[in-house]
């Protein structure tokens, strides 16, 4: 089975984000960039399925030359080959999906995997768009899947439960946290990564219609408040946790 995993370079979840001078982009200076955490699940899923049988895992990214980092990381984890579609401009999701689809149209893959979303723009759209552009079936928000007799059985995370869907190969899946706990790279994996093939070629981006016009910092955290004392306060606390904080 041949899989391609589309991955993205994003700011570290612990990075201190500064807005750039243009007021609409992140100032990259001093920011550490990482492999998008949801893409880690997708890479892990592809590696697990490769290890269970025969196969090959290709990782693909669209981005600046610096995206080589996350491809090397994926190679260190066990992917066999990497492809970077380079671009210096920022682009909307559909434009990126068109670049990926144009590349994948030329190649044969059984599985095209994405992380459910990228943690920088939270778009959650490129995977489904690529499926549409390639006229392939897809399943999104997948926590676990198996492959048998030319079809995928995927568990989808839905509100309050799980939905099981069957999708014929080849197909597109977007993966979220679930059965695929990302591994740590082994030292040998890291050292082998630099000898694995990594190709760079120019991305054929589609036209972007949406433009990021401004970025703003989140509001400062407000001080906590006491909702009452003793057991009398419990109903109000539960109501607030449910209705305001949306955590239960």
């Amino acid at each position: 089975m041949k899989s391609v995993v589309c991955v993205k370079r994003v700011p570290d979840t612990e990075a201190r984000i500064r807005i750039g001078d243009d007021g609409r982009s992140v100032d990259p200076s001093g920011v550490k960039f990482i492999l998008n955490p949801y893409d880690e699940f997708a890479v892990e899923a592809a590696l697990k399925h490769k290890e269970a049988g025969e196969g090959e895992v290709v990782v693909l990214s669209v981005g600046s030359a610096e995206s080589v980092d996350v491809l090397r990381t994926s190679l260190a984890l066990g992917a066999d080959e990497a492809l970077l579609l380079t671009t210096t401009q920022s682009a909307e999701g559909l434009a990126v999906a068109e670049a990926i689809a144009a590349e994948l149209k030329e190649r044969k893959f059984d599985l095209i995997l994405f992380g459910m979303k990228a943690i920088d723009d939270d778009l959650q759209a490129v995977g489904a768009m690529v499926a549409e552009l390639l006229d392939l079936p897809s399943a999104t928000v997948v926590t676990e899947f198996s492959v048998e007799d030319g079809k995928v059985t995927a568990h989808r995370e839905i509100e309050g439960g799980t939905e099981v869907v069957e999708v014929p190969l080849p197909c597109v899946l977007t993966i979220t946290k679930g059965a695929y706990e990302p591994r740590y790279a082994s030292l040998k994996g890291i050292m082998a990564a630099k000898r694995k093939p990594l190709t760079e070629k120019e991305a054929h981006l589609g036209l972007s219609h949406t433009i990021e016009s401004a970025l703003e910092y989140p509001p400062e955290r407000q001080a906590g408040r006491i909702v009452g004392e003793g057991s009398d306060a419990v109903p109000e606390l539960v109501r607030l946790l449910r209705e305001e904080a949306n955590v239960i």
Binding site: A76, Y184, A185, M191, K194
Partner: peptide, 14 residues
């Protein structure tokens, strides 16, 4: 170098 940084980050996270 890149490899040393990757090894470092891997152990740091672990």
């Amino acid at each position: 170098n890149d490899e040393e940084l990757m090894i470092r980050d891997n152990v740091r996270t672990f």
